[in-house]
Amino acid sequence: MKSSIEVHNLTTAYGGAPVLWDIDFQLPTGQIIGIIGPNGSGKTTLLKTIMGLLDPASGFVKVFDQPLDKVREKVAYVPQRESVDWDFPASVYDVVMMGRYRKYNLFKRTKDPDREIVLQSIEKVGLSEFKDRQISRLSGGQQQRVFVARALAQGADLYLMDEPFVGVDAATENSILNLLSEMKNEGKTVVIIHHDLQTVSDYFDYLLLLNTRLIARGTPAEVLTKENLTNAYGGQLTLLSKVVNLIKQNEFPIREKDSDV
């Protein structure tokens, strides 16, 4: 099976303490993939490291078997809604258009196909009637859909979404779910950070269960076992967090330099 994302021996640290620790996995293509785990388990850090927004302390990431920079245009990233100031003076259309601003097209004028793609993306998330509305005057769910539309406008094959279902209304949840099945039919791969365990088996074909380390991966049936969940959520990893604290306090290196890879 071709892999969408390959993560090899990945460690990412904040202020000396590992947030992700020796993570290894390969993700399939053409599936809806969920990343689950308790708060502070490194889910967002994992997406950011995959997107090259954080530098790993060790290890590497490959997307479609290549370094990210070679396939950037095939990857779209949806950050958490709360990560931006929605009072920014821009309309829905303006923000979705940002999904078309690439390194190489700075000097080119916006072309009709770009506008077409932007309008289609807005329509796909059901915001056509709001396309000229100032983004601060949208509900939380609508703002989330603006972010999804911006990613759609990139026309990517792989989508990484950070908690798109948090704090949204039922209409937005349904709209995103419909989009997901549509995208799957088109052969796209979608990776979603999620934290509602109730809906996990309905939404996802494949799961990563994370708590600083990779606890389990596979189909929902394989991952959602009592043992795995206890390992991730049940406080069974206190030993691990004690070690993390020790590293932080003593400013200890996470690994010896020459033992890498």
Binding site: R72, A76, P79, D94, G99, R102, L106
Partner: peptide, 23 residues
């Protein structure tokens, strides 16, 4: 005027701009 698109993208959402490969 020249860098307008990059400037707004970075001002609004730096992580996203970086994920698009903008410098």
């Amino acid at each position: 005027m020249i860098f307008y698109r990059w400037l707004i993208s970075v001002s609004f959402n730096m992580d996203f701009a970086a994920s698009m490969g903008l410098p």
